[in-house]
Each structure stands twice: as C-alpha cells, then as structure tokens.
Design a protein around this nucleic acid. Sequence first.
DNA 1: TATATCGTTGTTTTT
DNA 2: CAACGATATA
Length: 689
Amino acid sequence: MLENLNKEQKLAVTTTEGPLLVIAGAGSGKTKVLTTRIAYILEKKLANPSEILAITFTNKAAKEMKGRVQKLVPFGIHEMQISTFHSFGLKIIKENYAELGFEKNLTILDASDSKTLIKKILSDLNYDTNMYNPNTIKNRISSCKNELIDAKGFERFIASAMDEVVHKVFLSYEKKLKTNNSLDFDDLLILPIKLFENKKILERYQKMFKYILIDEYQDTNEAQYILIKKLSANNPNVCVVGDESQSIYAFRGSNYKNILNFEKDFKNAIQIVLEQNYRSTQNILTIANNVIKNNKQRKEKNLWTDQIDGDEVVLNQVQDEKTEADYIAKKIKELKNEGEDLNEVGILYRTNAQARPLQEAMLENHIAYKVVGSYQFYGRKEIKDLLAYLKLLYNQNDDVSFMRVINEPKRGIGNKTIETLSIQAEEKNCSLYNAISEGKTLAFKETIEGLKQISEDITLTELVDEILDKTGMRSELKKENSAMADIRLENLEEFKSITTSFEENYGIISLGEFLDEISLLVDVVEEGEDVPKVSLMTIHAAKGLEFDYVFLPGVEEGFMPHCNSFACEDDIEEERRLCYVAITRARKQLWLLYTKSRMVFGRTQYSIPSRFIKEMELEGEQIETVDHKVDLNFSKNIDKTLEYKIGEKVKSDKFGEGIIVDVGEKILTVAFKGKIQKFIKGHKSLKKL
DNA sequence: TATATCGTTGTTTTT
DNA sequence: CAACGATATA
C-alpha cells in the first residue's frame, strides 16, 4: 500500500494519531495520500468504516475519492461517510429535523429558487427591484449566513439604507424558509452547527467518528470551519489537506487563513509539506511558481519536479475572441491528428460567458466537446416545472415550487388570485397551499392531494407519468402540437430515464431521497457515449482536475484578474491564485492567449494583456503572435443559401429529429430528445424537414 | 387573465 | 447581447 509513496506522503498516511496538516502543492499526490490514509486506517483496524468521515467540496471529488478508496479496500465502502460538506449537513439535519423545528419533508431551494423567493419578498415589501438588486441582496444574506450571522444579529451591522433593506428581507426570507419547511444551501452548513448547541446531540456525532479527513481545507468558510471544530472538539484525529495557493472561493466566504491557523487551532498539530509535483513539466511549474510568488500572504513552499523541461509554454496574442477560439480549435485538431486523446485537452476560462465562441469553434471544426458544470438539462423550463411538482408533492409548504406550478399549465389563476391567496396565507401565517379555501385553486389542491394519495403505491417513474397526466402538463403540450412542444414532451420522457436509472441503482427510491440527491447534484450524469471530448469549463470547476494539454483564453486585464477585483489587493491575490490553479492543471503543454480586442457586453473593447503574464517571466522566443485570421477551410460542406427560423423542424444523422431553438450568426441551436446540440448553419449533417 | 412587444439593465467565480 | 420586467392590447 505504501510502496508507491514518497517519504512525505508515507508520513502523511501513517501519522494517524493527532491533528495533521498536510500542505499539498498542486499535483503533489493529495488525493492519493487521503485515500491511502483511509485504507491504512482500516487495514490497521484503527477504526471501523463507519467511524471515518471524509469531507470534500464537490460531488465530483467525493465520487472520485469513493472510487479510489474502493480500489484499496477489500469490502464495500457504503458504510463510510465520504461526502461533501453540504450533503453531510443535509444528512444531519434530516436526522434531527424536529429538534430544529422543521417537519419531516424538507425541500431544498437551489440558487435560482432563492432568488425567486427574494424577489417575491422585495415586491411584497414594496421595494423597487431596480433599486435593490435581488442578486446583491441574496449574496449579502448568503455571506452573513456563512459567517454565522443570523437575521436578527445582522441588525448591529446596519450602516446604510441598503443594509436596512437587506435586514428586512433577511428576516422575512428566514421566516419564509421556515414556514415553507425548506432550506437553502447555506442552511445545510449552519443548521447542523445550531443543532450542535445541544450537547447531547453534539456528543452523539462526536462519538460517531474516530477519524476525520478534510480535503481542500483552504476553501473552508467560517461555517464549515466551526462545524469541523465542534465535531472534533474531543477528537484529535483530524487530518486536513490543502494548499493556500489554491484558495479560490473567498467570494463564498472561504478563508485560507483557516489553513494558516491550523496549528494554532489544533494543539500539537504536525505539519507535512508535499512539494514534489508529479504532474507538470518543469516549464509549466516554473511559470506557476513565478506567478504565485507575487502573493504576499502564503506559506513558503516551492514546487519542484524531476520531470524534463518539456514543451515550452506558448503565449499568443490574437485579434479577438473569435480568432482566439479558432486558434485553439486549430491546435486541438493538430493534437488530434498526432493521435492525442481529446479527453486530455481542457479549455479553461475565467467567466462562463467566454464559453460561447469557444463552443462555436469546436462545432465548426467538428471537435467533440463537453461543457462541464452547465445546467443545460435541469435548467430547462419543463424540467424545472416537473421538479417543482415533485417538490410540492413532497412538501406542500414549499411556496416557491407552489408559485412555479400553480398556473402551469394555464389554469386561469393569475396575479389577482395569487395576491388574495398571499394575503390569506400571511394572515393565517401558513403556506400558500394551506391557505387555499376556494375557487380554481381548490381544484388544483385536489389534484395535488390525489397525486399524493397514489404516490404511496407506485414507483417514482410511474409517479412522474401520473403528474404529467393529472396536472395536464402532457395534454397541454400535446394540444399545442408545435415542434417545441414535442421537444418539451420528449425532455419530460427523458426525465423518466433519470428516475429509472436512480431506481436501478438504489432499488426503490423514495421521492424524498430522490429530491435530496438531485438537489445537490450539478451535472447530469453522462450517458455512455465513449467519444473522447475536449472539456470546456471555468477555472473554478477545473480545480482538482488535470489535463495533458491546457488552453487558457482571455489572459487579460479585466478577465484574469477580473475587473471586479481591481480595487482590492486581497482580491487581486485571489485572482493570482486562480491563475496559478489554471496553470497547474496542465501536465504536458500550456497555451496562454490574449486578444487585441474583445466583445464585452455587446461592445468591442480593446484588451490589455494580464499583469500576470509579466509575472510569469516567460522568455522571448515563447511568445508568438497570430495577426491574421486563422484559416480553417471548412466551408466546402456548407450551404450558405439556407435560412433558418426558430421552431423549425430539422433532422440530424446522429441525433434524429429536432427543433431549432436559437439562430445565431453562424450557429444553430437545436433541441433533441434529452439534449441540446449546436450546429453550423447550412452544414450537410443537418437537414431541414 | 393571457400574450406580445418594447425597453432596460446588468456579468465573476459555486455548493 | 440576452434576459427580464413593465406596459399595452386582446
């Protein structure tokens, strides 16, 4: 088990007793250490599987860790608690809902649900949403919650008129969540802490875990930090792994100082530094080190490797975002022709908005790609509607879901009715659903009650069918008889394949379990399709991942560092860490790109090369400039005379019949059963029907 | 109450 | 540029 580890890694695995801080530089074998450590503890019979708690930040990381631990131990790992902070929190809340004053069937609001609720509160309180931006208020509230400041406690921080509004909305928001019997993401962290004020309960959880392991410790925020602190108060066996140079979630309240302070917080802590990088070539590491050394606040460490220098890092100035994307596509084609695996190619950008021209270039050049971490399917209206029905069936107090579906499909229930109902709910201090007493809304209530009854005797997939029938969603879409409606219907059918696969994996799964899983899930699990694909994602989403070949478009002032960070040196340092994370994703080769001008907000702006480029201390010959448009010569298959309209039916050789949902200058967006696909206009692989 | 059209306004990053 | 909200009209 210990054979393939270096000296420091071995020490990190075998130092099982007492607090341990592992400073693990990028690519230094952090996950390997964590998983081996778990296996080692079990092998030495220091704990039962159920006495191990391993916490990660993302579902992806949790899944990865589970998989790797499973490979190391001879028995099933289901008893082990390997999960994200949020799902661990949810589990605790669910086990103690009554203690917290909730009812059993809790539902979780996602970010857009929270925003909807805040908007509604603002309008109920007669505030102008133009003056008080719901997003800003949502972020303010979220920050407070993550710093463990509750609505009442916020009072003493009020310093402006805006703060007054935030305070009022905050109070109302918390009250609404409670009456709705629902939680937002932040609650998943802070409610367990609240629960732990009860000594008995806290003790129960403290006794549960003998060994606690935390990944990406530099990303813990105050709430997560306190949660761990409480849980481990009587247990010294806490192992945290992290790298303050990779702390990139300050906007979410994460505090890299937690890692710098670990030795103060946990008495007699041992520190191990992993500095040998097994991932990248010397050339890549050098520029990463050069950039990060400009940050003042950090533990001194220097990544080194015994790898060869490797290919030079390429820095390239291009005309604009289109040329940039074309250049990347051209390089990827070359890699492909050389026989490289497209799964080993990553394009990492600072903002999601940058993805578009890149996707277009991939399409134009027939390069298979996936956008990682985009909600394409779950974000679709019909899917959100269906989910809202499911949530409402599970929890009738969920006003957000109620509002979403009360008039979907159209039932003649408009603003007036809702307003009256809202007033009644306010008076009775109950949810909208429970305030129903008359009229068209009563018929709706009866439908829901009917569905609730039958839901007890049927499977989840059958329930979805019943919902589609009884609520009229299906008949409404059939009646509409448009191509768009057909696609919506097909997407709803596709949703059933998701519930089916859940049922196959988990056996019979209850509505509640399903909703819990899906609420914390970001991506649709990729179905089969073993075609190698280039990954497009934000730098944030790329953390913890690695690729042989990495492209970094938009290394410009305003993007990297992002313009919102200009005013504050701490924010610039975070952007620098982000740059560092991006660079260190690459194993073999890295391309850095910046434009002369870029379209931002629909306007062309001149670009300035990022200050980080200078900090990289690249050498002259590494810099090449592409001034001309990259010639891609793909036009022979294109019929430029074809015209398209939204709603038209088309047929693709690969995906079957679809419907055009968007027409761009060069790109068509087509919705197929269960997926959205983009095409070049006039390409022969897509025929009009 | 439903739908169409126009104008306005804001974009970092995510569990 | 697009998404969303306000306003007008059926």
